[in-house]
């Protein structure tokens, strides 16, 4: 109750933020988590579209549908989270500027993937995260290659050449 009042006040006047950051400069950044999440979104869309509706096991279908949608939601949000961390915490100056538009497009596309069940959106999300991964590895001075991931949905994915 008080929290929601304060939250409204905060959105109106903008209360100051007290940082309680972990602040451990662990230096572990890797776009692979975001890529796997984006691929998962495609896979969930495929599974949702493949669901057999003409079956007596209506509860079973509903159950699977809900599980797939929940995973799609979660992984699309994970894409946003992971990309935001790399963009905000790792990329600096010119590289952050270069990634600015791409990061914003990933945010929009991941939200579109949460809102609907559209394979094109999901595939485009993978491609945007691929581009983001290339930008990230370039900033680290690491070469990349593209290969079809060896599991469904078998889409082209960016990998670092280590």
């Amino acid at each position: 109750m008080i929290h929601s009042l304060l939250s409204k006040l905060d959105s109106k006047v903008g209360l100051e933020k007290a940082s309680a950051h972990c602040d451990v400069p662990c230096g572990i950044y890797d776009p692979s988590t975001a890529l796997i999440s984006a691929l998962t979104v495609v896979r969930m869309v495929d599974l949702i579209e493949d669901l057999e509706s003409n079956t007596a096991d209506k509860a079973g279908v509903a159950n699977k549908m809900i599980r797939c949608v929940a995973q799609k939601e979660e992984h699309a949000e994970d894409v946003k989270h992971e990309v935001r961390i790399i963009w905000g915490d790792f990329l600096k100056e010119a590289a952050a500027q270069e990634a600015h538009d791409l990061t914003h497009r990933i945010m929009l596309k991941a939200s579109a993937c949460r809102q609907g069940v559209n394979r094109d959106d999901a595939v485009e999300l993978v491609e945007l995260v691929n581009e983001f991964a290339e930008l990230f590895w370039k900033a680290k001075g690491v070469e990349t290659t593209r290969a079809v991931c060896p599991y469904e949905p078998k889409l082209e994915t960016v990998y670092p050449v280590l």
Binding site: E16, A18, S19
Partner: peptide
């Protein structure tokens, strides 16, 4: 007094 919003997990 002052009211602030916590940002981060350290606490």
């Amino acid at each position: 007094f002052q009211i602030v919003r916590v940002a981060g997990q350290s606490m």
